[in-house]
Write a protein that binds this DNA or RNA. Sequence first.
DNA 1: GTCTATAGCGTGATAGAC
DNA 2: GTCTATCACGCTATAGAC
Lengths: 240, 240
Amino acid sequence: MNSVINPEGEPMAANQSKRTNARRRPADSQQPPTADRLIALAAHHFRTNGFHATTTRELSKALGIEKSSLYYHVSSKDSLLYQICVESLNSIRDAVAGALEKIEDPGERVATLISSHVQTMLRDRDLHATMLIELRALTGTNRDEVIVLRDGYESLVRETIGEAQAAGALTRDFTAHELTLSLLNLLNWTIFWYRPDGPDSAERLESLFSHIFLEGAATNADQGKKKKSVPKPRRAVVGR
Amino acid sequence: MNSVINPEGEPMAANQSKRTNARRRPADSQQPPTADRLIALAAHHFRTNGFHATTTRELSKALGIEKSSLYYHVSSKDSLLYQICVESLNSIRDAVAGALEKIEDPGERVATLISSHVQTMLRDRDLHATMLIELRALTGTNRDEVIVLRDGYESLVRETIGEAQAAGALTRDFTAHELTLSLLNLLNWTIFWYRPDGPDSAERLESLFSHIFLEGAATNADQGKKKKSVPKPRRAVVGR
DNA sequence: GTCTATAGCGTGATAGAC
DNA sequence: GTCTATCACGCTATAGAC
């Protein structure tokens, strides 16, 4: 795999996640180009109803044009999903890698990763939730390319965690891979229940997840002494 | 909402999650009734390809009968999804509630919840992954009823966590609701990447998640002393 | 309990005028 | 850049014989 090019021939440079600047745009336009509005609209519908349950008729109606007119802006429904996934993964990687550039301490790098990841995901839930759950609706090379991007980001996380382990900041009772999966579990699922108008701000959630992942939820019942109420891993208690 | 009855009139007793025993079954049959095989098959397809992308043709072909014959066993494709979601949620609740019955210590109850939840989910990934991601494809009363079941289980988790907080076993820096969402994030997302033949056994994951949720991943760099490498929650480092 | 046949509808996408 | 008109197909579900 050489580069990120979708099959319909629209080039999408790997480092260019801001689609807004990707097209020529008349100075007097009051809103983004139709193609960009379409992507954002599609992301919203795909997140809410799913890719397969969303029809091109719904999208065209929401855009205020006829359904056939969509195909002037995009070559297929699949291409919409592909572009959403690419933009999502590029923007997460750019945000996290950019934030990490300034930080040297390995432990602090993990905290920075958590905060930039959460902030970025919650800033555009439509985009990132669609990538997370509808990626599997992609087929062929589109799918393969997006999976390469996703694995690339996962590697960035795993390396950051591995370096924190090597520096003694994170436990070595578990592999970097195991800690990476745990952390992504904790962070990514959030997007499905988070509501911007709910009780938890993005900052509050950063704090919550940093605390859980780094320090855990248990108290040190007697300060400075070893915890005792945490049982050893054991066999299932039920049904086997 | 009084009870869990699907609109097509098939009664589904709330305490009966083992469908295998729910139907009369000839003593000489070599395999479960067609209806049960159909549910398991549908769960597998729904998890792999999604509810809307799965066609009745695929299901009938996999079952070895004509597509019209499916409707002898089930009233609609929606009903299949509904039954899967109900069975999933009932079995999780039964397993966890059953495991908790024997445990009194509030801190240990949290650990028991984690282990029985993980064990149950990973034992039938098709069933539970379908419930988690395809629940939204349900409509009308089917959807409402399943959401009641889901919220009921979430309440069980929240109460268990709240009691552990009251007993001093869990931090009170965050609400029971926040800790509940964090824990379910950590546990539920697993089902999308877990492979039974992979490096991590279910027991290993229990241990991993218990450790992360209760103690966190950071080391006590100097034993018995207060952690210092954990930065306070802060503003986003990037892009705002 | 399974079959053949088909109804009835919604879908993604295209052709070609303007 | 948007329109009208339409194609060709796949879908869920039903009817009725065996």
